[in-house]
Amino acid sequence: MAWIKKANSAMFKGADWNTLIKKVPNCTLEEAKRIAIKNPKITFFFFCREGMILENLGDKGIFNPGDAVFFSGEPWYGSAPQCDSYQKTGMSVAYVTLSEIQTAGCYTMADGSAAVDVVCIFAANINLKPFPSKMIELAPNTKVPDGYPYAVGNPEYAGLTSAVVQELQNKGITVLLTFLNNWDDSGWSEFPDAATAANFAEQLKEVVDRLGLDGIDIDDEYSKNPNQNPSSLVMVTTMMKRLMPDIIISKALFEDSQYFTPVYQNRTLVDNLSYGWEMSYWETPENRLPVYYELGMAKNTLVCGFESGKSPEPLTTAVEWLKNNSYGGVMVYAFQEQPNVDLLGNLVNDWYGSGNWNKSPNCS
């Protein structure tokens, strides 16, 4: 739902083009939306259906069909019948199990675009050997030294392929894979040193490259190791950022203030996270998101989580507060369950207006 469309418009030729971030040729509209989601600094873009020349801009004013042109800051639109512009607004994020991920592509806005913007596949795991029964390595081509943690998944993850991911991406949906600690001494906060963290980051790069993912989502729960390393998260995310500078690195946030203080190679966790989805579902947004804003995260990178049966009513009040305070959007957990599908539908309609959550007739 993350877009307000202004038809037949582009950035005005007399506006401040110093806010231009980049131009991507030979793009589809769906690809352009994913590019913009992957970079929180992008606030709007225009997409060319036909060729266009804007005078007084030199070579950067020449546009071909399929060009997507991305900007930061506020848009200043000018008439351009060859193009349409899209301003970023509240995102909708869905956590969903692998077996049901295509469900996220079944819902559309009133204009036919995808109603779900970001899917977090829940969840792959971090584990030491021996793995739980039948777990499979997700990065088999990356050598893992003895005693280091592995990126693994249950047997179902043998069916996670680039084609499965691309089916959603072709609809303009950004696809992340969540990695969750799994009840042993390994975990996101348990990397003891740089070598261990670097090896896991290399495993994640293999997974991202093989599957064509848009990013990695961090769920730092359920490790049984009592000896956390306070610098672990900033260390491993710094290495992920170095290896994969263009991916999303997001985190499920829950009472995480202590992780934002450590510094690794002059970086903090704020420098490395693209987005944070706050998951204290039973609390109102105003009691959950400002603490992370005060720690340095931009408001448009902070998304409020909801879950059926836990989140306080009324939803319209929560959505109004999020919009009025320029926060990033809404997230729903366990999207594979119908009550949570209905919940995200209500949130989308509250954000954009009734009629903006529609099930495709092609989906059962």
Rank of each mutant, 00 (worst) to 15 (best):
P245H: 14
Q166L: 02
P262M: 04
G212R: 07
Y222Q: 12
T43E: 13
M11N: 02
P81E: 14
N266A: 14
G212T: 05
G153D: 05
Y352M: 14
T237E: 08
T108M: 04
F254G: 03
L57K: 12
G112E: 08
V24L: 05
S92T: 15
F335D: 09
I249V: 15
G61V: 09
A10L: 02
D220H: 06
N356M: 12
S232P: 07
K299V: 08
P140Y: 05
Y333L: 10
D193C: 11
S280T: 12
N358I: 15
V175Q: 06
N182G: 00
A252M: 06
P149L: 11
N358S: 06
P140T: 04
K224S: 11
N170Q: 14
S326L: 11
A80S: 14
P149V: 08
I53L: 09
R288C: 13
D184S: 05
M331V: 05
L289H: 04
P262C: 07
V263P: 00
K143D: 08
S133V: 02
N358Q: 15
N324G: 09
Y148M: 11
T178V: 03
N39W: 00
A80R: 01
Q265R: 14
G215F: 02
K13I: 02
L138T: 00
I136V: 15
V164W: 07
C363F: 12
A7Y: 00
T142D: 00
I62H: 12
S133L: 07
F122L: 01
D84E: 09
I216E: 06
